[in-house]
């Protein structure tokens, strides 16, 4: 009899605690989620860039989601350079053909994959980009060749809306 009583009490208390814990969790979530990107930030996910004025060998930097995006119209030499590298020589092997679908155009996030600085254009040992913060060298395809950065500069989702307009995101 007394055993049964204990069980029932345990069940009541356990149930109360469990239901209470669910409520605490449900209350905490909105306080955490409010720090995630809000609806207006998410809505600005794509941007269109007019690239008609870009001549070969020139780069423009545009802002997308608060980050710089490099759009470079590459010269024949640069393309040849980028495509001739053996994958074995790369720290983060990736074919240039996969990074630049249209070889003339390289579109990538201008953010060093080391700690997030913006690399400098036409600098470094590989004639691509050089990050002044901690000395990472990128080649003409934006791939990491030397220095502390672990991976290549990221290529965002983008498409040519027409011959002169690139839509990023």
């Amino acid at each position: 009899m007394s055993e049964k009583k204990t069980n029932r009490r345990d069940f009541l208390f356990t149930a109360t605690y469990a239901v209470g814990a669910v409520g605490v969790g449900a209350t905490v979530w909105p306080m955490i989620d409010q720090m995630n990107p809000d609806a207006s930030v998410k809505a600005l996910a794509s941007t269109e860039v007019d690239v008609s004025s870009l001549t070969p060998g020139k780069t423009i930097t545009v802002l997308w989601r608060g980050k710089p995006v490099f759009i470079r119209r590459r010269t024949e030499d640069e393309i040849a350079d980028a495509r001739s590298v053996k994958l074995d020589d790369l720290k983060d092997p990736e074919k240039d053909e996969d990074r630049a679908k249209n070889p003339e155009w390289l579109v990538m996030l201008g953010v060093c994959t080391h700690l997030g600085c913006v690399p400098l254009n036409d600098k470094g040992d590989y004639n691509g980009w050089f990050c002044p913060c901690h000395g990472s060298h990128y080649d003409t395809s934006g791939r990491i060749r030397k220095g502390p950065a672990p991976t290549n500069m990221e290529v965002p989702k983008y498409e040519f809306v027409n011959a002169n307009t690139i839509k990023i995101g």
Binding site: Q34, D38, A39, S40
Partner: peptide, 10 residues
Amino acid sequence: MRDVNYGWLI
């Protein structure tokens, strides 16, 4: 009230 996640609730 409109855009922040659960902003209206808070």
